[in-house]
Design a protein around this nucleic acid. Structure first.
Lengths: 346, 346
DNA sequence: CTGTTAGCGCGTTCAA
DNA sequence: TTGAACGCGCTAACAG
């Protein structure tokens, strides 16, 4: 009773192998009698159904999608938006009878081989840096693949909102009437350095989502006649409210405290609100604050923010990756977003 | 250039198939010259490495672990503890060069076939109901499998803290000096009904973790000479602070408001604290409150709670599932837990 | 260090 | 409706 094969079941049932196979794959094509005999024999022998690997090899499909999550998985799972995104993928996968394999990227040398060796029909890549070697590895498999957020890679699909346009729009609301705007940003480099700079050049930023949002905020400043070089950008090492609160407290403590703060995430914005309260600065009269994502916390805090559905985007990625052809068809329509105005802005 | 096989690469490189195979699997066993020729040919033909399915079939292992997540995946991902658990699994998987396949249970009929058809070497099952049919499906595959939290199933491993003992211990702290203790519980049935009852019999509760915690709280009440039948149990439909706050508000509004509340999760306890504040009841002097898990929120709020590491437990599950033999060896040592006393109790 | 042989377990193909 | 043969792409085992 070590390893039972379909052939053994068929023999025990007194039918051919194919009848046994049909019993599992096309039950309707087998007589009731034969099916019953096969199932009885399987039960008797402890046969748990066709071997998944053999089946995958034979039919040329694993019925599984791979999700590449960059850097530390803990961070990915700690990000509520990433979690929503995964749930969207899972919905589509479950609906299609597909599994979902998480491929954590550790930064070690074995990332690329692990991705290449993944038994999946297609890939979904959570947003990563422009020069991430995993992107090339995914492309080299020639299987359908979709990148979320960016970077855009030839041959791979892309599902994303227009981050630059959205940042420009939310920046317009955040910075309206302001004289000393500030930005709270995600990391500018893989080193995740926490720092405060003025009007950084977005171009060298390797994370496309962060780069495009910076560009959009800069557009917004330009639109309002504000000099980007005067805009303070507080860079957080992580999407973490406590760190944003610390950095924001320093900003409010300076001689020229900001009167408008646009944050790249709702959690960061929540930290800014904390710091504003602690510094005794009224929102929005003395300082306007905006977030990003329209998470639950945004509604709780009355935060003006950018709404987007990571869940829908996850689902869109999964559908594209399930499609036979690489989702390059017709250029992916950008995902929807909108500005939600609440009390944290003027 | 549709589908390139190892044999084609070998031919193009002018070597045998095995030399090509070794190039990928045992590079050291191939001469530099041969290896270079193989890799050059692979590059030329656009060969992305050995086919994962064929490799799995041949060597009898998929190098992937399956994680069965019950009910709605959104709930699972929304639960910070579940997320930590997954991160612990991912760590071990990545370290062992394994992938990690999420198997969402939807409640539909295809759950069992999907689990059976999963191409994985072993299973980790997130705590579920005693009568969950997926448990039998997992066991029938005869692959190593570990259940987290419970139920205990013959032939499957179990990784869990002793929930009853922990509940008894935290209940002793929560209920000390109290006259009208209360409990805020997870759902008692799969229907997830939100309700308030008195001293419910734990026995028929199908979720083992919830059942054992109820038993432990009852033990604690017994130890203190308090009648379990007088203990109010507010049952939340989800692990959600807002719902706990609503139920707790009703309790505080009653003629015999509780002077001690033991909650099965820190988020629930946070909701209770909110409700206590709103009702003008001082913590801990008028009402003691305890949580469970020692999440970040517990430290923030000064909550006395049960500390356990879901991350470590996830890692332990993964290691057990990676072990060749079903983790029944020697009876799994229970995972560690401890009581963390903070200001929310007397 | 390299090559030959022999399947892993299943499902598509074609015939009965 | 059922059966027989074949091979999916790869690698363990064993020569040479």
């Amino acid at each position: 009773m070590k390893r039972v094969t379909l052939a053994q079941v068929a023999e025990a049932a007194g039918v051919s192998v194919m009848t046994a196979s049909y019993t599992y794959n096309r039950p309707a094509r087998v007589s009731d009698d034969a099916r019953a005999r096969v199932l009885a024999a399987a039960d008797r022998l402890g046969y748990a159904g066709p071997d998944p690997s053999a089946r995958s090899l034979r039919r040329g499909s694993t019925r599984t999608l791979g999700v590449v999550l960059g850097e530390h998985l803990t961070y990915a799972f700690d990000d509520p938006q990433a979690v929503r995104f995964l749930a969207g993928i899972a919905d589509v996968c479950a609906g299609a009878g597909y599994g979902m394999t998480i491929l954590p990227i550790t930064g070690a040398d074995d990332d690329v081989p692990r991705v290449r060796a993944a038994a999946v029909d297609g890939f979904i890549v959570w947003t990563t840096a422009d020069d991430d070697p995993v992107l090339a590895a995914v492309r080299s498999t020639k299987r359908p693949a979709v990148v979320h957020g960016g970077p855009a890679v030839a041959g791979l699909g892309l599902v994303s909102i227009d981050n630059r346009a959205a940042a420009r729009a939310i920046g317009a609301v955040a910075f309206a009437g302001a004289r000393r705007p500030a930005v709270v940003s995600f990391p500018l480099s893989r080193e995740r350095i926490s720092t405060v700079v003025r009007g950084p050049d977005p171009a060298p930023v390797l994370f496309p989502v962060t780069r495009e949002r910076l560009e959009g905020y800069r557009d917004a400043a330009d639109d309002l006649g504000l000099a980007w070089t005067d805009v303070t950008v507080a860079v957080c090492s992580r999407n973490d409210g406590a760190e944003a609160a610390r950095l924001a407290a320093a900003l409010f403590d300076a001689t020229d405290p900001p009167d408008a703060v646009a944050a790249m995430g709702d959690l960061l914005a929540a930290g800014v609100l904390d710091a504003a309260r602690a510094a005794g600065r009224a929102v929005p009269s003395q300082v306007a604050v905006t977030g990003w994502d329209d998470a639950a916390v945004a509604a709780d805090l009355g935060l003006t923010t950018v709404a987007q559905s990571l869940r829908d985007q996850g689902a869109a990625c999964a559908r594209a990756a399930l499609g036979a052809t690489p989702a390059r068809s017709a250029g992916p329509p950008a995902a929807p977003w909108s500005i939600v105005r609440r009390g944290s802005t003027r």
